[in-house]
Design a protein around this nucleic acid. Structure first.
Length: 433
RNA sequence: UGGGGUGUAGCUCAAUGGCAGAGCGCUCGACUGUUAAUCGAGUGGUUGGAGGUUCGACUCCUCCCGCCCCAGCCA
């Protein structure tokens, strides 16, 4: 801070005092000899009142020049006023313009189209709904760390620039000195497995990149993922942890970000369902359920988004769909001893048509089986040498999962499209601002 | 990539083959308590682009472009 300016949110602690507030103008109103400036500073909004006969001429003239988003410094008396949302207003003694703002500021206090707002994302982020979302996002990120710290998981940062490993979907590539092509990581999981053999329980939390040409409300090309990896956890332990984790995240936002959820007009009763045990539905039963509701999905196929919606709507709470067919899932998932056609995995489907927010599995720990799967998938075995070593030198039962941060935020906040829950979304056809 | 939709003033939208409009914004004016203040006046257009049909096209047709929704891929 430049000096002892007061944050708007803290004004109630300064009732009756003369304080300095700095912020940006959102509205101006005038009634001839009384003028009103509404300003925000990131912590809240404040109405400041200027009376022509009680302020210096320079301040009165400065008011006349105010436009939306002009940055200002206000010195005045904090006084209680029942008409104000926060209960206080500022009786201005001095108004000083810090930075002017041309009259063509694009965002008005009215409805705008999505494309226009995304073009002006740097300004859109100044609006109340967007700041509420960003505060929930921050709360969730902190909650992730608190949850795992309390359980003695070690946070490990895995590389973003990688050689060609990982999953099958599209990769962003870039030149990498004499090493050829590097790819932006689409998961930290394989590194997480190596670290689990070193530290026991670990998690990674960072951005991941997928060059898929997806244009849905659930996809970004750059998104943040939490990926825990636990030594000596089987798939049941894994799901138990996921259930505790998701329950904690929801409770944390309900407890600490109620104001933000109110701004977002979130019906929080829809989140009460996380307190009940999550449903654990075998893949075969999930297929049968979807079929009974009109889907033509067949055993062996991955569930489509409409199938997932049918399944979750039926149960009205989070659902684990467990043990998918091998062909529908990645090579590293452990073969199910009870039914070798399937693997020991689970997708966690969030309520309200949100679809998959977690994908997880027990990892294949048998050297020969995973080598066989790599070959089957026609993946370059030589690139996976270090990964195979984890099975060769002291293999171990282990499991992990990946939680999509943006999908989780969108679900908890009740935001339709995940492009709104990351400050500067990266999607097909959008790289600016 | 496939299916559907859409594109008109700075923004949000009207104009169903016959004079291209409104609200908001912006400019000027009035007002000593406003809450997206109110009231009065003013300002605003290559109707996404190219071609075609027609006496006449924002409107109908063809192609192209942008965006939105859905699907696939996944978190």
């Amino acid at each position: 801070m430049i000096d002892s300016a007061v944050r708007i949110a803290d004004l109630k602690q300064h009732a009756g005092a003369i304080v300095t507030v700095r912020g940006w103008v959102t509205h101006v109103r005038s009634s001839g000899k009384v003028a009103f400036v509404v300003a925000r500073d990131g912590s809240g909004t404040l109405q400041a009142v200027l009376v022509k006969s009680q302020v210096p001429i320079a301040s009165w003239e400065a008011f006349a020049t105010l436009t939306q988003e002009t940055s200002v410094e206000l010195v005045g008396e904090v006084r209680a006023d029942a008409r104000q949302p926060g209960g206080f207003e500022l009786g201005v003694h001095v108004l000083t313009v810090i930075g002017t703002s041309p009259v063509d500021y694009p965002i008005q206090p009215k409805e705008h189209g999505v494309d226009f707002l995304l073009d002006n994302r740097h300004f859109w982020l100044r609006t109340p709904r967007q700041t509420a979302i960003m505060r929930v996002r921050s709360e969730l990120e902190q909650a992730v760390h608190d949850f795992f710290y309390a359980r003695d998981f070690v946070r490990c940062d895995t590389p973003i620039l990688t050689a060609a490993i990982g999953e099958r979907a599209g990769l962003f590539s870039t030149e990498y000195f004499e090493e050829g092509t590097a790819y932006l990581a689409q998961t930290g999981q394989l590194y997480g497995e190596a670290l689990a053999a070193s530290l026991g329980n670990i998690y990674t939390f960072g951005p991941t990149f997928r060059a898929e040409k997806s244009k849905t409300r659930r996809h970004l090309t750059e998104f943040w993922m939490v990926e825990p990896e636990m030594a000596w956890y089987d798939q049941d332990d894994n799901m138990n942890l996921q259930e505790s984790f998701v329950r904690y995240l929801v409770q944390r936002v309900l407890e600490r970000r109620g104001e933000e959820l109110k701004v977002l007009e979130r019906d929080t009763s829809k989140l009460d369902c996380v307190r009940e045990p999550f449903v654990r539905l075998d893949y075969g039963d999930a297929v049968a359920l979807a079929q009974s509701k009109g889907s033509d999905v067949k055993w062996g196929e991955d569930l489509g988004a409409p199938d997932e919606a049918l399944i979750v709507d039926h149960h009205q709470r989070p659902v684990f769909v467990v043990n998918y067919p091998k062909e529908a899932k990645a090579f590293y998932m452990k073969e199910n001893p009870a039914d070798p056609r399937t693997v020991r995995c689970a997708d966690l489907l969030a309520p309200e048509g949100r679809g998959e927010i977690i994908g997880g599995s027990q990892r294949e720990d048998d050297y020969d089986k995973i080598l066989h799967r790599l070959t089957e998938e026609r993946l370059p075995v030589e690139a996976y040498g270090w990964y195979l070593d984890l099975r060769k030198y002291g293999t171990f039962t282990h499991s992990g999962f990946g939680l999509g941060l943006e999908r989780t935020i969108a679900w908890i906040c009740g935001i339709e499209h995940i492009r709104e829950v990351i400050p500067f979304p990266r999607m097909m056809g959008r790289l600016h601002p």
